[in-house]
Deep mutational scan, measured.
Amino acid sequence: MDALKSAGRALIRSPSLAKQSWGGGGRHRKLPENWTDTRETLLEGMLFSLKYLGMTLVEQPKGEELSAAAIKRIVATAKASGKKLQKVTLKVSPRGIILTDNLTNQLIENVSIYRISYCTADKMHDKVFAYIAQSQHNQSLECHAFLCTKRKMAQAVTLTVAQAFKVAFEFWQVSKEEKEKRDKASQEGGDVLGARQDCTPPLKSLVATGNLLDLEETAKAPLSTVSANTTNMDEVPRPQALSGSSVVWELDDGLDEAFSRLAQSRTNPQVLDTGLTAQDMHYAQCLSPVDWDKPDSSGTEQDDLFSF
């Protein structure tokens, strides 16, 4: 819950932080000083300027060897085509990944977070970031790969997607708890209302004896509580940590079903599988986004697919 609360507080303090972009060759504004600060901008989305290598189908939802083989196929196909790589912007948030063309600003792909089953910074092609997700059109699994400016960037994108998945799962947990509370309150309110109706004398007997209905007592009954809980029953509950912020979080049926399955089948359902080692994760978390744009010590960066 700490990640969720800190993310909400950060967004309320400075929503404009989320509009910064990394990996864009110096076009961005001043960047936060450390990885923790940038992680807090996830709610509205972190932007990464990358190059799209392509996509291939895979048979399993996750796995280092599986993704490595898929990336190898994608890279080989991209090299064989001889075409310049498409420059894209990857927007990562707890909602998922939005992929747009840098030149036309046209939407290429919009992947809900619950469809993503794996992401990684490839070991062999260490400047490549990739994720595996279920197609929104059918049940097939797709591996999408992107060329980053350097290994640090690939690791940073991988960690960002993993963190977005974690925050999304926490949102789901909060929403589920809130819905259970509202359902319980609604049920209790309905029981109270039913009890009051059972003990209320029939209207005919009131008229016969000349008694008047006590409207004041009726007004004191917990009807307002019942209506408050039943009027918006169809509205999706939102985490309290975000009250007053500009973010509107809505959970669709697909996300609810997917996270429910994860909660039942996995020990740590909030953790998205990645190909990063503990050492890689520690190294990337210690980086400032400013470091992502620094040239690798191995030599001059080449803006070309064939540089790796």
Results as ranks from 00 to 15, higher is better:
6 S>N: 13
115 R>F: 03
133 A>N: 09
193 L>T: 02
74 I>M: 01
235 E>K: 07
63 G>A: 15
9 R>I: 09
277 T>I: 06
245 S>H: 03
150 K>W: 11
113 I>W: 01
127 K>Y: 00
20 Q>A: 13
142 E>Y: 14
273 D>H: 05
255 L>R: 05
228 A>H: 08
267 T>N: 03
53 L>R: 00
82 G>Q: 06
66 L>E: 01
3 A>F: 10
162 A>E: 04
34 N>D: 05
111 V>F: 05
87 K>T: 14
246 S>F: 03
182 R>W: 09
260 S>C: 12
278 A>V: 12
21 S>Y: 11
237 P>S: 13
144 H>I: 03
117 S>I: 01
176 K>S: 09
128 V>G: 00
194 G>W: 02
210 G>M: 09
58 V>M: 15
11 L>Y: 06
205 S>G: 09
149 T>L: 13
243 S>M: 05
283 Y>V: 12
160 T>R: 08
133 A>F: 01
168 A>M: 14
153 M>Y: 10
27 R>C: 10
29 R>E: 07
84 K>E: 05
183 D>H: 08
85 L>W: 00
173 Q>S: 15
72 K>Y: 11
108 I>F: 15
66 L>A: 05
94 P>Q: 06
302 Q>G: 12
38 T>C: 11
274 T>P: 03
77 T>D: 14
188 E>Q: 05
297 S>V: 13
202 P>I: 02
68 A>T: 00
256 D>Q: 04
291 D>L: 09
181 K>A: 13
103 L>K: 03
153 M>D: 10
180 E>L: 15
105 N>Q: 13
25 G>T: 03
140 S>D: 13
213 L>N: 09
301 E>H: 08
189 G>Q: 12
253 D>L: 04
108 I>E: 03
90 L>H: 00
53 L>K: 01
2 D>V: 07
26 G>K: 10
250 E>L: 05
197 Q>L: 04
200 T>D: 05
85 L>Y: 01
164 A>I: 04
239 P>W: 05
15 P>Y: 06
131 Y>N: 00
92 V>Q: 00
202 P>E: 14
301 E>I: 08
218 T>C: 12
19 K>L: 13
153 M>A: 09
272 L>Y: 02
307 S>H: 08
208 A>L: 08
219 A>K: 04
111 V>G: 00
23 G>D: 06
19 K>G: 15
92 V>C: 10
182 R>L: 13
4 L>M: 14
288 S>T: 07
89 T>E: 10
253 D>M: 04
299 G>E: 07
201 P>Y: 03
157 V>K: 00
137 H>L: 12
242 L>T: 09
116 I>F: 05
38 T>H: 11
306 F>S: 08
50 L>I: 15
57 L>Y: 10
212 L>T: 03
282 H>A: 10
22 W>G: 11
23 G>T: 01
163 Q>C: 14
102 N>A: 01
306 F>G: 03
12 I>Q: 13
46 M>E: 14
146 F>P: 00
216 E>N: 12
246 S>G: 13
152 K>C: 14
167 V>K: 13
233 M>A: 05
45 G>W: 01
85 L>P: 03
105 N>Y: 09
17 L>A: 15
265 S>G: 07
177 E>F: 09
23 G>L: 06
289 P>V: 01
157 V>C: 13
110 N>M: 15
105 N>H: 14
44 E>T: 08
71 I>H: 01
154 A>D: 00
185 A>Y: 13
21 S>L: 05
109 E>F: 02
180 E>A: 14
66 L>D: 06
100 T>K: 11
164 A>D: 06
77 T>C: 05
179 K>A: 14
63 G>Q: 01
103 L>R: 09
7 A>C: 13
209 T>Q: 15
265 S>Q: 06
14 S>K: 08
222 P>H: 10
296 D>S: 11
170 E>F: 08
38 T>I: 15
194 G>V: 09
281 M>C: 06
131 Y>Q: 00
187 Q>L: 03
271 V>K: 14
148 C>G: 13
239 P>Y: 04
96 G>D: 15
58 V>Q: 01
129 F>D: 00
286 C>D: 14
225 T>W: 04
280 D>N: 07
13 R>Y: 14
82 G>V: 14
233 M>H: 09
298 S>D: 09
42 L>K: 15
34 N>T: 13
165 F>L: 03
293 D>F: 01
182 R>Q: 13
226 V>I: 12
157 V>N: 00
67 S>C: 14
206 L>V: 14
72 K>L: 04
210 G>V: 15
81 S>L: 07
28 H>F: 11
290 V>N: 12
235 E>P: 08
109 E>N: 08
200 T>P: 13
167 V>S: 10
158 T>F: 03
212 L>E: 04
60 Q>S: 04
201 P>A: 14
253 D>V: 05
227 S>I: 11
217 E>M: 10
68 A>R: 02
197 Q>F: 04
201 P>W: 03
149 T>I: 14
173 Q>P: 05
194 G>M: 03
108 I>S: 02
282 H>I: 14
224 S>G: 04
197 Q>E: 12
131 Y>H: 01
8 G>S: 09
113 I>N: 01
90 L>P: 00
81 S>M: 11
31 L>S: 12
86 Q>R: 03
190 G>L: 03
225 T>I: 04
46 M>Q: 05
56 T>Q: 13
105 N>G: 04
191 D>Y: 05
101 D>K: 14
56 T>S: 15
99 L>N: 04
169 F>G: 03
20 Q>H: 14
9 R>W: 15
144 H>K: 15
41 T>H: 10
10 A>M: 01
68 A>N: 11
117 S>Y: 11
158 T>D: 04
70 A>W: 05
64 E>H: 15
80 A>Q: 08
226 V>R: 08
260 S>Q: 09
102 N>W: 08
290 V>Q: 07
89 T>W: 10
126 D>T: 00
170 E>A: 05
19 K>N: 11
91 K>S: 06
31 L>E: 06
287 L>H: 11
194 G>I: 07
34 N>E: 10
305 L>N: 09
